[in-house]
Design a protein around this nucleic acid. Structure first.
Length: 210
DNA sequence: AACTCGGGGCA
DNA sequence: TGCCCAGAGTT
């Protein structure tokens, strides 16, 4: 890919990701954490449907933690892996209330201590909620980066390094957020919505898809 | 580093 | 129907 094209994509991306209304725009850190945990192997639509229904009722670790395993399973039944997610969510709520005074931790290290929260989830929450500079390469970030030609590496760690090199550090958090959102809503694994993509003119991948 | 887990989505 | 997959946890 030409350097100019790459620069243009980065510039447009930077213009775009600031202030984009994203799918991960939840009103509290707790809600974001819950949504991200539920998002694994689950479509955006399903997660949104569930969160819209349950957050008015259970929007704090105390309230959600007061549910039984069966009750929470029933609430999140529509998303994949709901049994283990319910179990992890309850344990996480309990830990948050008992050990963290119901405040979502602001470091990757602390976040990863929560049950069901691994490297990816911890990085997403830290970077989106607390603007910790991080770009954790999940499948969405991996796919979008390759399609846009921002990275060539064939493993997530290589892609992470390429992105970190290409993007100024003070933009990592916003770029991370945007790449995830874009991968979930527009640049989907199957049937990407190229006609709705702000980068379509510059994207090398669109030619294959259109 | 390799394996397991569980359920949605697709051929 | 059977295979794949994302990400966390386990060995």
């Amino acid at each position: 890919m030409r350097k100019q094209q790459r620069e243009a994509i980065l510039a447009l991306l930077e213009e775009t990701y600031m202030g984009t209304e994203t799918a991960l725009n939840y009103s509290t850190p707790f809600e974001l954490l819950v949504a991200v945990i539920m998002s694994a192997q689950c479509t955006d639509e399903r997660v949104n449907k569930i969160t819209a229904r349950i957050f008015p009722k259970y929007n704090t670790p105390e309230k959600m933690g007061a549910l039984s395993q069966e009750q929470l399973e029933e609430e999140i039944r529509d998303c994949g892996l709901f049994r283990s997610k319910a179990k992890n969510l309850l344990a996480t709520c309990k830990m948050l209330t008992e050990e963290y005074n119901s405040v979502i931790p602001d470091t990757v290290e602390e976040l990863m201590k929560l049950p069901g929260v691994g490297k990816k989830t911890a990085n997403v929450v830290a970077s989106i909620v607390y603007k910790v500079p991080a770009i954790a390469v999940d499948t969405h970030v991996f796919r979008v980066s390759h399609r846009l030609g921002l990275a060539k590496g064939d493993d997530p760690l290589a892609v992470e390094k390429e992105l970190q090199k290409a993007i100024p550090k003070n933009k990592w958090s916003d770029a991370h957020h945007w790449l995830i959102w874009h991968g979930r809503k527009i640049c989907k694994a199957r049937k990407p919505l190229c006609s709705e993509c702000v980068l379509v003119e510059l994207c090398p991948y669109k030619e294959k898809n259109l």
